[in-house]
Design a protein around this nucleic acid. Structure first.
Length: 220
DNA sequence: GCATTAACATGCC
DNA sequence: GGCATGTTAATGC
């Protein structure tokens, strides 16, 4: 459970989180978009956000999801002048907006917190590397399987039937997360359901058999 | 075989 | 109606 450990370490930044403005975003509401001034970091208190690039053709690539205890907009404290991504809420989402200068000066004085921030950044990077490798080498079944596994580990809610992926995702969202067409994602999901690996209904996926999913990541 | 695109059907807020 | 989902035919690599 490396993700849990990393999230726990972000608790070192907690004294900061009381020093920002709390903001509530509704489902699909845009938190920021490319080109706007990048002057704050967000801490996610509850809900989820989707970080994506939008191509001029209208196609979207979702770089990742962030959930409770995560940060978003970290480019602001790394010297980024303007936002590069779209960030949207998935379901009602409560954020704490932290001023860039406040965060940077605080991190300079708190090496422990800075280090946990680095660990968290590394986790984000690792997830992106996994996606890149999958897009280069794996088919859609494998890509989807790994993504579902990752989502269930990161945002999973235990239930009687299995692990519910606790964010409001459409097939289109999932397709944009694995760089595939929505139709193929629907087909792949239906196949996994027929094999008894998951249950699904609108906006809802329950992973019933993680071991089978893991096997699917490797083989086509 | 695997995947994309386009088109269309169905069903749920 | 608009959006999410299911399905299929045509086409490309």
């Amino acid at each position: 459970m490396p993700s849990v450990q990393v999230r726990d370490t972000l608790e070192a930044l907690e004294p900061l989180f009381s020093r920002g403005e709390r903001e509530l975003y509704r489902d699909r509401e845009v938190i920021y978009y490319p080109g706007v001034t990048s002057d704050s970091l967000f801490y996610i208190e509850s809900g989820h956000v989707k970080v994506s690039f939008l191509d001029t053709s209208g196609k979207r690539l979702v770089l990742g999801l962030r959930g409770p205890g995560d940060l978003v907009g970290e480019g602001a404290i790394m010297g980024e002048a303007r936002r590069r991504h779209f960030v949207q809420a998935l379901g009602d989402t409560l954020l704490v907006r932290l001023d860039r200068d406040l965060v940077t000066s605080w991190l300079r004085r708190n090496p422990e917190a800075s280090f946990s921030f680095l660990q968290w950044l590394h986790k984000q990077r690792t997830e992106l590397e996994d996606l890149l490798v999958d897009v280069a080498f794996r088919d859609i079944q494998s890509r989807l399987s790994r993504k579902l596994l990752q989502l269930s580990e990161e945002f999973g809610v235990p239930t009687e039937e299995g692990v519910l992926i606790g964010c409001r995702l459409t097939h289109k969202d999932l397709a944009e997360m694995i760089a595939s067409a929505r139709e193929n994602t629907t087909l792949a999901l239906n196949r996994l359901e027929q094999e008894g690996i998951l249950d699904k209904s609108r906006y809802r996926i329950v992973v019933k058999n993680r071991e089978s999913l893991k096997r699917k990541c490797r083989v086509g």
